[in-house]
Design a binder for these strands. Structure first.
Lengths: 355, 355
DNA sequence: TTGTAGGCGTTATCAG
DNA sequence: CTGATAACGCCTACAA
């Protein structure tokens, strides 16, 4: 047992006032606006400060200033799960960039004994960024109670709930169009599971919109999600679930020429699973992902994907939030980030099977 | 411009006291320890609370309670760079897990206008986790001033600076031994650059210890880092720098049978670069990494690596810190996490070139 | 069970 | 340029 004494009566501004022979006011100025006291006073105070080891207490400072200098990120899942998702990590990068620019810290707010409400209640932050927040969630109400500004990424944005998104329907449409244009007609679709509870439905809106996009693209050439040529295999955004998909395909005896995933992680898992079953990509079967994460570049063959910049999203969201914190208003309550298709080796042309 | 009014005179405990007809004390109890007031009082107060929209102010609460319910992670680099390093992201997972268990938030503390000292000064946290902190850094002094407990990961741990590490020297030794045992004698070593400044030297200690490990292993069979058969190509932990290494090898006309990297990211970059130059892995050249990140599994061929669990490190560090926060002491000031070798396809046997 | 009053450590106001 | 004094909003002995 090693002792680490740290709390030996923290020295306060009063102590320093006494030690330096000046008033608390003077001390405060010395640290915050030295121009308002004499040079001599400043020096004496600072000297005394390092003598007795004084350093302003951030807690008290915050209360007085009525601000935390920190924004919070409300996590929809356990922190370790969140970090497993490279897309979210990208978002974090973007948020972090803005925080650095503005001198704010970024507080990750985990569920408090499983309760998001309690977590929000106690969050010591000047504003909140949420992930996939839907207007009707009870969390929204709780945030409003706190009377701190907040924005959402990938949620249901509205004038009452500013946020940043991509055009998910269009993105999915583009993704499907590409696949169809290459001649694929036997398709396995891997959406995110539309959870029934509606509580942790980070992806609810998104999944729905993307499915719409898929359907439009299919409809354009007279196809539809029929459960025969074109089937659905929902999966979470994890490699394991991606691998599981490849197994299910085999179990079903379904042999699509392409697998379209709603996330790159799933797609990569899928590639690994398919290869493990002796299929070769893209010769026997193509795979397409969604997100454009880094790892898509390093797999073999590299992953074709619908790329959205999580970093850009995070940055835009933070900007939005800071403008809310500063001016209490935003120019646009909805920021739409562009998406694009990145064509790589995992997807190739396919002559439609005849018969 | 959409207005988002949020600050319309926040309602305080006094307001609720008045509105409910009870005292501030009663209100406080209602929220913190309902058993201390009558059931009736509790209900009336809570009812009134939701009427007028009262919610305790965390800032004031913290000041009064003298705690933030948050620990800080001091970042050695820009947040976006940090997030680019999967190993650090793993550490984050581990820390996050502990935070969830204890109900603490995790605050990422970026440099404040480039100054780590200012960042520390203002950090509103109950304790700090640092990355690669060396005892003689000025940041240490600043943290001591704040009189908050702190631990370090991958730093110079001592009774005065508890922390968690792996046995880096031994790990590097093991890594090199494996390579040598497979017959490799032409070796490219890719350490992290030992920066001269010493300021951002997150890896200083580590690099040095690992180099020692390499040297011991080499010495055992009468070899040494001679700049001929065994050469050094320092590189940062990025894919780009890994790719750059492959280029430098070619420029030098050096044709090692194996490349040993101090991080998986570099190793993966290297693999990509080598393959881009027409070399086949592992037939022509083997590659070995360090860290054991996820991506090592998905590259082709999968990466052989010296695996350390960032998650375990983060978890242990957070545990250490919480014990410091709670009891002001720790059982062991140094936690050593085990490491292991993961053999995969990127490394294969090699008959030593003769002549 | 309830209320009064003082403290947490700063910053801000406003005289001198 | 300097210094009392009042916020900031909550918690908690202590007294009633």
């Amino acid at each position: 047992m090693t002792e680490h004494k740290t709390k030996e009566h923290r020295v306060t501004i009063s102590d320093l006032a006494e030690a330096s022979g000046y008033s608390k006011t003077a001390v405060s100025f010395a640290f915050n606006d030295p121009t308002r006291i004499s040079k001599r006073a400043f020096e004496i105070i600072m000297e005394a400060a390092s003598q007795i080891g004084y350093v302003p207490n951030p807690m008290a400072r915050n209360l007085s200033l009525q601000r935390h200098l920190s924004i919070g990120l409300l996590l929809p899942q356990q922190l370790d799960e969140v970090m497993l998702n490279p897309y979210i990590v990208e978002v974090l990068q973007g948020i972090g960039l803005e925080c650095e620019r503005t001198g704010y810290a970024l507080t990750m707010i985990p569920l408090l004994h499983g309760s998001i409400t309690d977590a929000i209640r106690g969050a010591a932050v000047d504003g909140l960024i949420t992930l996939g927040m839907q207007a009707e969630m009870k969390a929204v109400e709780q945030i409003r109670l706190r009377k701190i500004p907040f924005v959402t990424i990938d949620g249901s944005v509205s004038p009452q709930m500013p946020g940043v998104v991509i055009d998910d329907e269009r993105a999915a449409y583009d993704q499907m169009r590409l696949v169809l244009s290459l001649g694929h007609r036997q398709i396995a679709l891997v959406p995110m599971p539309l959870d029934l509870e509606g509580t942790s439905s980070v992806h609810r809106d998104i999944t729905g919109m993307r499915m719409n996009g898929y359907k439009s693209a299919l409809a354009e050439i007279g196809l539809k999600l029929d459960g025969k040529e074109i089937r659905c295999y929902p999966a979470e955004c994890t490699r394991e679930e991606g691998i599981a998909v490849s197994r299910k395909l085999q179990d079903d005896g379904f042999e699509p020429t392409v697998v379209i995933c709603m996330s790159d992680i799933t797609a990569i898992g899928c590639m690994m699973g398919l290869r493990g079953r002796g299929l070769s990509i893209p010769d026997t079967i193509s795979v397409v992902g969604f997100d454009g994460i880094d790892a898509g570049e390093i797999v073999e063959p590299p992953l074709t994907t619908l790329s959205q910049s999580g970093k850009q999203k995070g940055k835009a969201a933070a900007k939005l939030l800071f403008s809310l914190i500063k001016d209490n208003s935003v120019e646009d309550y909805r920021i739409t980030i562009p998406h694009s298709i990145i064509r790589r080796g995992s997807l190739c042309k396919r002559t439609p099977n005849i018969g």
